[in-house]
């Protein structure tokens, strides 16, 4: 009743259609550009996996008996210190300055750049197209109100001062589509499509750290010093305490089936805590009593949950 229907036929629907089609084309072009997934490099994979192995050992050590835990702990500590898992052994001189010579590093950079280009180029082209062809008129009325400050952004090209902010130009329709079509693309193309904003944000925060094929890169883009990381992990490993999950399983079983009162477990916990703090006070141990109390509390919580 207020706008010419020709605008609807020739601007509104075409812009939306173009954005949907460009999104689909971009997805398939990205798939074609990336080609087949690269084979993982054995040495790089070994590096990352060794680190994960140490972390898993620390977190789930309660599933192993004491000797198995100690054996793995000492083996991993020794390996980290000697650097058996490093991709480039410590002795060899790798010129750190000239990174462009390392082919794997270049691959990682190219992948990141490709992804950026595939996102930025269509956006810029479509924005330019809209600004060139569809500027200077009101396209649609937004059903919800916005503040005055949005007026300059949403009514670019329309030189009125009194029209309220709900009447907007084509560029704001472009932005609406940009955000609103994300979920539509997920519906059409499945979850791994190239236009996913979430994936972009994740990619920006973990730059270079994708498959094990590429070398490890830190947040600044410099290859991280794996040896230092290994040494740090070795420190963590040395501090790890072993806590066998089957320690008092007989008592727990009896309590579970009601043959013994639950107070038996609680007494054991407090006795163990008292003994641990006494020994910590007597002999100077490396783990602070706060950590000890925390592990004892975690122990009792786990026992209560498992029972």
């Amino acid at each position: 009743m207020l706008l010419d229907p020709a605008i609807r036929n020739w601007v509104l629907i075409p812009i939306m259609l173009v954005m949907v089609l460009v999104g689909i084309v971009r997805h398939y072009v990205t798939v074609l550009l990336n080609g087949t997934p690269k084979k993982a490099d054995l040495k790089s994979a070994r590096e990352t996996k060794a680190l994960q192995r140490a972390a898993i050992l620390r977190a789930h050590g309660s599933h192993l008996p004491e000797q198995a835990f100690q054996a793995r702990k000492s083996y991993l500590s020794e390996a980290f210190e000697k650097g058996t898992y490093l991709k480039d052994p410590i002795g060899s001189n790798k010129p750190k300055g000239n990174l462009m010579s390392d082919p794997a590093y270049v691959e990682t950079m190219m992948d990141g750049m490709k992804k950026n280009i595939m996102n930025i180029v269509p956006q810029t082209v479509i924005m330019g197209w809209i600004n060139f062809f569809f500027s200077g008129f009101v396209l649609i009325q937004l059903p919800f109100p916005l503040t005055i400050r949005f007026k300059s952004m949403l009514q670019r090209g329309i030189e009125t001062q009194d029209m309220d902010v709900t009447w907007v130009s084509s560029l704001s329709w472009y932005f609406l589509n940009l955000f609103g079509l994300q979920s539509v693309f997920t519906l059409i193309l499945g979850s791994g499509h190239a236009a996913d904003a979430m994936r972009d944000m994740q990619a920006m925060s973990t730059m270079g750290m994708g498959a094990a094929a590429g070398p490890q890169m830190g947040p600044t883009g410099q290859p991280q010093d794996m040896h230092k990381i290994f040494l740090g992990e070795k420190e963590n490993l040395d501090l790890a305490e072993h806590e066998w999950g089957l320690d008092d399983v007989e008592t727990r079983l009896l309590v579970k089936y009601g043959k013994k009162p639950r107070s038996v477990l609680v007494d054991k916990r407090t006795k163990a805590l008292a003994a641990a703090s006494a020994s910590a006070a007597g002999a100077s141990s490396s783990t602070p009593p706060a950590a000890l109390a925390a592990t004892a509390a975690a122990r009792s919580k786990k026992a209560r949950r498992q029972v």
């Binding site: 000797q67 054996a71 793995r72 000492s74 083996y75 020794e78």
Partner: peptide
């Protein structure tokens, strides 16, 4: 064989 090579069983 490698992991348990140097372990002394206390």
């Amino acid at each position: 064989r490698a992991v348990f090579r140097n372990v002394s069983f206390k």
